[in-house]
């Protein structure tokens, strides 16, 4: 089949637009980085307070060379993994119980709403007293932040399943197990993926916040330590590493989403 002139023109226009957007984004980032570098080196910006891109890169390379980066990265990723997976499993279980037991849902509904609106960082100091100044407190902080939002998102997905489909399953005398595994959970895939996305970003916030409060290693610790000793290169290196972590985690979730929706 031959492609029409209009189709070729449309495709070219589409590609041109994509390239323009990408080029503009690269130019904006480059201008910002170069201006920052120039302003710091020429004395327009105080290098001690604002650092500069080349110093940040140097700091990261130094951390790679002396092995510090792996230690801190491992700590943070480990805490993220634990908070994320435990939070997700707990959210899933809680959402299923809430869905199957309407009375339980009615009982805990106001508590969930209040807990959801509470800034969890306020509980942080108490967690340290209860669980000690260690990684356990940080993981619990991460779970506290992601659990309720994930639970409500998954539960909402369960609630949105079409009544007609539920009636169909009941007309076939489906058991609760069949209803959950063959209809409710597969039907709520999109909500579960939304919960994954929310969970990732919430966990990252929780873990870094936890590391700010209590830690001897981790990216959050690097940032806090850098601030205390006025080493802004270290602080910004920590932030750049965090950006890279969150970007990679986001890509992983998008990849999972694509596999599920295939």
């Amino acid at each position: 089949m031959s492609t029409s002139k209009e189709q070729i023109a449309y495709q070219r226009k589409y590609i041109r637009e994509r390239l323009f957007v990408l080029a503009s984004q690269l130019i904006i980032v480059s201008i910002m980085l170069f201006s920052w570098e120039y302003a710091s080196n020429s004395g327009h910006l105080n290098k001690f307070i604002f650092s500069c891109p080349s110093e940040i890169i140097k700091t990261i390379i130094q951390m790679i060379n002396n092995g510090d980066l792996y230690k801190h990265l491992f700590t943070t990723l480990n805490e993220i993994f634990l908070s994320f997976s435990l939070g997700l499993v707990m959210a899933f279980a809680l959402a299923i119980i809430m869905y199957l037991n309407k009375i339980f849902m009615k009982i805990i509904d106001p508590f969930l709403t209040i807990l959801n609106s509470l800034p969890k960082v306020a509980i942080g100091p108490m967690l340290i007293i209860w669980f000690g100044a260690n990684a356990k407190s940080i993981v619990i902080m991460g779970i506290l932040i992601n659990l309720i939002v994930s639970t409500l998102t998954i539960y909402d997905g369960f609630q949105k399943i079409d009544d007609v489909k539920i009636k169909l399953f009941k007309s076939f005398r489906a058991s609760k197990w069949q209803l959950m595994t063959k209809l409710i959970i597969p039907g709520a895939t999109n909500s579960i993926i939304s919960a994954l996305k929310l969970n990732i970003s919430m966990t990252l916030i929780g873990v870094i916040m936890g590391e700010f409060l209590v830690s001897k290693s981790g990216i959050g610790y690097l940032i806090i330590y850098g601030t205390q000793v006025f080493n802004l290169n270290l602080v910004l290196a920590g932030i750049v590493i965090l950006l890279i972590i969150s970007f990679i985690l986001y890509i992983v979730v998008i990849f999972i989403e694509k596999i599920i929706n295939r």
Partner: peptide, 24 residues
């Protein structure tokens, strides 16, 4: 029982939908 809508499950193939009642 045939309902107001087809109520086919979008994540199952036509064959899997057709044998859904038998499976359940």
């Amino acid at each position: 029982y045939m309902l107001q809508e087809d109520a086919l499950l979008p994540w199952l193939t036509i064959y899997e939908n057709a044998i859904l009642g038998l499976k359940i």
